[in-house]
Write a protein that binds this DNA or RNA. Structure first.
Ligand code: MN
Ligand code: MN
Ligand code: ZN
Ligand code: ZN
Lengths: 139, 139
DNA sequence: TTTCTAGTTTAGAATTATTATAAACTATAG
DNA sequence: CTATAGTTTATAATAATTCTAAACTAGAAA
């Protein structure tokens, strides 16, 4: 895969969600999606990594806006683990996580690695939106 | 059960955890623990309910301090559900929850109501701290 | 190509949840 | 009763996030 091809791909991807392919968004796309493995992050860590090298600076407000836009568009998934801080995941498929309370890091658990053989029915009028497990681990 | 007996009980309970039985703490104990069913709350809702009636006012700082002290003492459990807001539970036994994204309310699921027939081993050097499931529900 | 405009970026202000500070108050040991 | 460590409280500080409004820009239309 060649970088320029990726760029074109991201332009398509953004356009298809009615998001203009700005240089900020493309930079964030390259950073987030041009990788082999799942990436888990907070806005704070993403901001640091995006603005580490001396290229064009992306403002913190734009990082927030973009993460929100990408989540709405289905390119990112929000993972609820930690109180007071939002975590995001480039793996948008349904899957589970380990959450390390020490390092505060998430690790994927493939969906098939956890089997829920008994699940309660939700209260009437309500349906299950999501059944992903977060297993808290520590030393 | 008579209120005055409860009061004595809470005095014991607090003393046994090296917490002085102040009138603020006893008021919060009465409110939280003198009830049949599990109570789920945030600091915001607890503060409102404690200070609704025209009795002695308990400051927000004390609500925070007390919830923290009771959680450390094992009288309350923190439930991680919502980003950016801490939820607490008077049911300190290991159990699961429904979390309604609309009403933002928690409902207990008894531990036996969910069966995890396959659970991955944690990364080496790490152990599972907690395996409680939060099932997100919506209309 | 230039023009127009809605969408976007940005710095900074505002908001929300929580924690820290430090002075006044109080439970309780002696 | 007195001393003192623990507690409460108003308020300030911090952290994460959202809001605001002005400057900027992508891309449609002229
Ligand atoms: Mn917070
Ligand atoms: Mn927050
Ligand atoms: Zn993941
Ligand atoms: Zn519960």
């Amino acid at each position: 895969m060649i970088i320029s091809n990726n760029l074109k791909m991201y332009v398509q991807k953004l356009r298809s969600s009615n998001l203009r392919p700005t240089k900020q968004r493309l930079k964030i796309c390259q950073f987030l999606f041009n990788r082999e493995k799942t990436f888990h992050f907070t806005v704070e860590t993403l901001n640091k990594k995006i603005n580490k090298n001396k290229g064009m600076k992306v403002s913190l407000a734009t990082i927030y806006n973009t993460v929100e836009a990408f989540t709405s568009a289905g390119y990112l998934k929000e993972i609820l683990t930690s109180k007071n801080k939002s975590y995001y995941d480039t793996n948008t498929k349904s899957h589970h996580h380990f959450y390390d309370e020490g390092s505060k890091e998430l690790t994927d658990i493939h969906y098939s690695q956890i089997k829920l053989s008994k699940v309660p029915t939700p209260p009437k009028g309500k349906k299950i939106k999501n059944l992903e497990v977060v297993i808290r681990i520590q030393k």
